[in-house]
Amino acid sequence: MTDLQRIMHVEDDPSIQQVAKIALEAVGGFTVHTCSCGQQALEDYPNVAPQLILLDVMMPGMDGPTTLQHLQQKYDLAKVPVVFMTAKVQSNEVASYKKLGGADVVVKPFDPMTLSDQIRQIWTDFQR
């Protein structure tokens, strides 16, 4: 199994962008490319070639699920798990996000100290 290295984080809130970047890079040792909107994610994808995408659900303009649809239409995401990130959800919502093609859901608020462990676990599960 290849190690997880490159993560693309799509999130419009600058404060969350920063804290996730530190959480994933400094704590987890990953490399994070941050996109501030779905459109940018579509444009940056080929150059970044992320192994995993962390995608905020609620964004102005193009929301997370729509961004995922466009990404799937343009690129082959068979080997790239997409993890939705959203404020507190109910268990049935998690199922609906997975139906949309999400590998898993990370619930906000998240703990910066354990976020990378959570992502690594999702990566491992995805490889099985």
């Binding site: 969350i16 507190k88 608020p109």
Partner: peptide, 11 residues
């Protein structure tokens, strides 16, 4: 408020 609800907890 959605954004704040996620961010406040994280901080």
């Amino acid at each position: 408020s959605h954004k704040l609800s996620g961010a406040c907890g994280t901080f």
